[in-house]
């Protein structure tokens, strides 16, 4: 049970750090990395759920959710980076210049 708590609590802290990063960061790449960190926190939490009950094998459904989530996060990140690069090419700067977030 302590293992579960250790990973789950770490996941929550990482999630919060990522959220802070997305709001505060100005450079697009930093925002995207912060989003990935948030995702990392969620995935850590999912793994901790899977490892909880020690029966025949760890719960495969959260592991499957995790794998799907990682691929989806990868796709979204790649998409975001491509868009950020296009913004850089077109505007010459990699920040969202007009407005807060």
């Amino acid at each position: 049970m302590t293992m579960f708590l250790a990973y789950a609590v770490t996941g929550m802290i990482v999630f919060a750090i990522g959220l802070y990063g997305v709001v505060i960061a100005r450079h697009l790449l930093r925002k995207i990395i912060a989003l990935n960190i948030m995702a990392g926190g969620v995935f850590l939490f999912l793994i901790s759920i899977a490892a909880r009950n020690s029966q025949a094998f760890p719960d495969p459904v959260p592991q499957a959710m995790l794998l799907t989530g990682v691929v989806v996060a990868l796709s979204a990140t790649a998409f975001a980076i491509a868009l950020a690069r296009r913004i850089y090419t077109v505007t010459g700067s990699a920040t969202l210049s007009d407005g807060e977030r």
Binding site: F15, L19, V22, L28, K31, L35, M38, A39, V42, A76, F79, A80, L83, A84, R86, I87, V90, T91, L96, S97, D98, G99, R101
Partner: peptide, 17 residues
């Protein structure tokens, strides 16, 4: 439109997470 799209993307990804 590219900048608007980026804002939308970040909001969407935050929401999904």
């Amino acid at each position: 439109v590219l900048i608007a799209g980026m804002r939308y993307l970040i909001a969407a990804m935050l929401g999904s997470m």
